[in-house]
Structure formats: structure tokens, C-alpha cells
Design a protein around this nucleic acid. Structure first.
Lengths: 188, 188
DNA sequence: GTACGATACGGTCCACTGGTCCGTTTGGCA
DNA sequence: TGCCAAACGGACCAGTGGACCGTATCGTAC
């Protein structure tokens, strides 16, 4: 079944409204209804299209995820594959993930409040965490790369980084440095 | 002003009901109203006593926190002060925190959903994190102990540990081991 | 160009939340 | 015993995510 024209129109309107609203407002004040209203559409239309609030947020994030995934999967080294320097691979990847979180804090925060494990349990996160485990395993043979990957992925949560920046007055460079030490204490 | 007898009666009833309810039910199904009803009391009574839901949960946790804080502040080494083995201090402390989280998962989960930073922004957590930074600094001079302490404290979140156990099938010993490596990669 | 069936639409409704308000009851002191 | 501050709790509020269903619109087959 091909997508009807009005449905397509509404889909892009809802995505655009959601993106705009999540950037502009505080995460906890963005509700399904407000997104719908901002898009000039009924709540039910949003729900039907995206299943639930979580689905909507994932759809908004997905656009941004794709770009980074491409660079990781098939871009130039050290972020992309190729080269054999395990440490360089790992640290480039950490930087890319960290930048991604900084750029998309609001959306990731919104994702985190959707459910207890919404941050971890979504296809993109699985990819990020798996890739992280692979690179940690390559750079640090002998450690429990799976656990460590989830630990690092956890301190990459947007709420955590926001807390450290705004309540503990740590600047981004300090957090970034700490992250690298955490993932690979022997340095790059 | 001394506490009136009926107020005292209600305070213990609410605390008991909350404790019981948080243990028995899923965190997200425990609401202010249900606690009040279980205590045989009006919602407003709970609110007046504890300010808001966060205050209630903190009050319930406080009882359990006190016991561990005593052991840390004035108990026997290696958890308590005394002795000079920095690593032993750190690892005993990590074990104690980890056990505390396992024993109080439900309550900590409830705390986490109260607000974006409710897990970090409460007096007990400040104590735990500061002490953690102190012990990490002692065991590993030269690292950014403050950042690392928050990172470890973050990985100790009950939702994170629950996720690793039940969705990633990691058993508690594995998580515990990973935690020790994270805080001190050179081993105990 | 028109008629029709499938599809998408959105307002209304629901159960529920945390929190406020305010008239009523109760405890403790003089 | 009488009184009043303090504590009480139910009704109420604005808000949530989500379900429902009668209606309007779209695209197609004629």
C-alpha cells in the first residue's frame, strides 16, 4: 500500500514540529498533544503514524543517527573501518559519540524519559553499544568489553552529561577526557 | 512545636505503607494516592508531611542510608576509616555501595523517576559520591577522581544494573567485577 | 468526470497522575 | 471544660498518554 498524499504531508509536518519543539522547549514540557497541535494535526494522527510517544521520538532521532552510522560503517579511518590502530579507532569513536550526544541532548533526554530502558532498548543504541564493545575489545584485550561498553555508554547518557556540566560545573573537555580515560586508562 | 500524636501516628503509617508498597509493586505503579490509601490517610496528609513525592521517597530511603553511612564513617576497616590501604578502602566501599543498590533497587528506581537529577541531587548521594571521589583519589593519584567518581556512581544506578541483569543477562558477580575494574583498572 | 470504498483524520473520552484548596475534625494546653 | 491552632482528607485542578469512532478525504475504477 502506497502512502496517501495527505498522510505523507502530515508525517513530515509532525516530524518537523516535533524536532522544532524538542529543540526549543524543555524536554518535560513537550507532550504528545503539544506536538500534535504544533503540527496542526490531531493527537490520534500522531499516534497512528508513530505508535506511541517513544516511536515518535525514535523517528525524529533516526534521521540524525543515520548520518553518523554511515560515517562509522563506511567513512574514512580512524572513525570508519580500515587502518589497524585499535586505540585510534576507539578514541575517534568515543569523540564521535560524545559530539553526537552534545548535538542531540534534548532528543536523547526525551528518549530517556520515555521508559525505564528506552535509552538502551532501541536499534540505534544496540548498534552504538555493540560497536563500542568491539572497539574496546580490540584496544584492550582481556577486559570485559561488553560490560565496559555498557558502562561507557551509560555515562554518555544526555542526562548524565547535562548534570555534570550544569550542576557539577565540569566543562565538556573535562568530561570528554574522563570518558577516554574510562574507556582506556592507558591513554590513546 | 512538638509533633502532635495523630501526626506522628500518620507519619509512621505512611512510611510503613510506602516501604511496603515500593517493595511489593512495580515502581511505576506506585503513586502518591495509592500510598495514601494504603496508609489509610488522605493524599494531602502525605503531601503536607513530606512536601512531595520525592520527599516521601527520600524519607523512606533515609532510614536505610543511615545504617550504611555509620559503617562507612565509623565502622571497622576496610570499609570504615583506619588502615592505610587505599585500594582496600576503595574496593570495600564499592562492594558496600553495590550491595546497597541490590538491596534497595526498588526504592532507588523510584527515586530515579522523580526528576531528571533526583538520583544525584540528594544529600545521601552527595555523601556517597564525595566519599567515592576521595577513595578513588587515594587509590589512583593522578586521575580525575571527581569525574571518575560520578561515572562509577552513574553505573551504580539501579535502572542500569537492572537493565544489565535482566536484558543483557549479566549476573551480579560479573557486574560487580566490571565495577571494580572501572574504578581501578590495575586491580585490587 | 463521477461514484465509491478504503484510508486517514481529529475531537471526545477515559483512567490516571502529582499537587492545591478549603471546610471539618481533633488534639493538647490553659 | 473550652478553645484554637494544627492536622486532617475528600473534592478538585490541569495535565498526561492513549483508545475510540463517526466523518472527511483521497485515489482509483469505471
Amino acid at each position: 500500500m502506497v502512502e496517501r498524499a495527505d498522510a505523507a504531508r502530515n508525517r513530515v509536518a509532525v516530524l518537523a514540529a516535533a524536532e522544532e519543539l524538542f529543540q526549543r522547549e524543555d524536554v518535560e514540557h513537550v507532550s504528545l498533544e503539544r506536538v500534535a497541535r504544533a503540527a496542526g494535526v490531531g493527537k490520534a494522527t500522531v499516534l497512528r503514524r508513530f505508535g506511541d510517544l517513544l516511536g515518535l521520538i525514535q523517528a525524529v532521532i533516526a534521521v540524525r543517527v543515520a548520518e553518523l552510522q554511515d560515517r562509522v560503517r563506511s567513512g574514512p579511518a580512524p572513525l570508519g573501518p580500515g587502518g589497524t590502530d585499535g586505540c585510534g579507532h576507539l578514541h575517534a569513536y568515543l569523540d564521535a559519540l560524545f559530539d553526537f550526544v552534545l548535538d542531540n541532548r534534548k532528543l536523547i533526554r526525551a528518549l530517556e524519559v520515555c521508559g525505564p530502558h528506552a535509552y538502551y532498548d532501541n536499534p540505534a543504541s544496540q548498534f552504538w553499544a555493540d560497536e563500542l564493545a568491539r572497539r574496546i575489545g580490540a584496544a584492550r584485550p582481556g577486559v570485559d568489553a561488553d560490560y565496559l561498553a555498557y558502562a561507557v555508554f551509560t555515562v554518555l547518557r544526555a542526562d548524565v552529561i547535562d548534570y555534570l556540566r550544569h550542576h557539577r560545573q565540569m566543562d565538556v573537555d573535562r568530561i570528554r577526557a574522563g570518558l577516554h580515560v574510562l574507556a582506556d586508562p592507558r591513554g590513546a
